[in-house]
């Protein structure tokens, strides 16, 4: 049974419709890449899953309808979001950012520090004074502290130095190999997505146009819908 099930998801910003029918399923422990060109509805889909915008269609987590829940309850049900642009709590320290989000479970300050040793050295430092890469690690750590069953990473490596990107991807691989958390990835690096993901869902003009195992994603399909 799927952990997350999305069928015919539609959403709009005011009078402008952004999603016209997104379908995707994610099973426990599975890594899914949500792909597509810019403006095709990837982030909107994530926002709809997290109930940050209104949407229609079927949207369930472990069989429970998410449409009747506010966003904080969706997060409590186990959907952890690392938003585009990081958005850490700037005035809080690294430790405080993590504690503020903490919920009971296997992820603790210690395990986050083990995943990102760079954060361990900066626990008392304000989030605003961290580098972009460290802020990204903090945003991932903060989402993990909610002990999610589904972790959504929206452009987690955007604008980061290559060495930091490698660190983020290494952490995603560790999460995949060592935990049972399902991961939904959005990223511009098709090469990295292909290496870490089990399957891909491609969006074009606000709807799912292709989905399947990552091994079935041919260069032709990628070129046609993703442009890479």
């Amino acid at each position: 049974m799927s952990l997350l099930s999305v069928e015919g998801l539609t959403a709009r910003y005011g009078s402008s419709q952004a999603l016209f029918g997104v379908d995707l399923t994610i099973a426990t422990g599975e890594v899914t890449a949500l792909m597509g060109r810019n403006g095709m509805g990837k982030t909107t889909t994530v926002k709809a899953i997290c109930r940050l915008i209104r949407s229609a269609g079927r949207l369930t987590l472990d069989g429970a309808d998410l449409h009747c829940l506010p966003s904080h309850k969706v997060a409590r049900m186990g959907v952890g979001l690392v938003p585009e642009g990081r958005r850490c709590f700037a005035d809080l320290t690294v430790r405080e950012n993590l504690i503020a989000a903490a919920r009971p479970g296997e992820w603790t300050l210690k395990s986050v520090a083990q995943l990102f040793p760079a954060l361990a050295e900066r626990m008392a430092q304000r989030a605003a004074s961290l580098s972009g890469g460290e802020q990204q690690m903090l945003a991932i750590g903060r989402a993990l502290m909610t002990n999610p069953r589904l972790l959504i990473l929206d452009e987690a490596t955007e604008g980061l130095a290559p060495i930091v990107r490698q660190e983020i991807w290494a952490a995603v691989r560790r999460l995949k190999e060592e935990t049972g958390v399902a991961i939904l990835l959005i990223d511009k690096s098709v090469k990295e997505l292909a290496q870490v993901s089990d399957k891909a869902v491609i969006l074009a003009r606000g709807k799912t146009v292709w989905s399947g195992p990552m091994t079935d994603l041919t260069p032709e399909i990628s070129e046609r819908y993703v442009g890479v």
Partner: peptide, 19 residues
């Protein structure tokens, strides 16, 4: 800490399960 975070970015606080 959560209250402080809610002061800074209320929408972001919701995504970590806090009302």
């Amino acid at each position: 800490l959560a209250l402080n975070a809610a002061r800074q970015t209320p929408a972001r606080v919701e995504t970590v399960g806090l009302n």
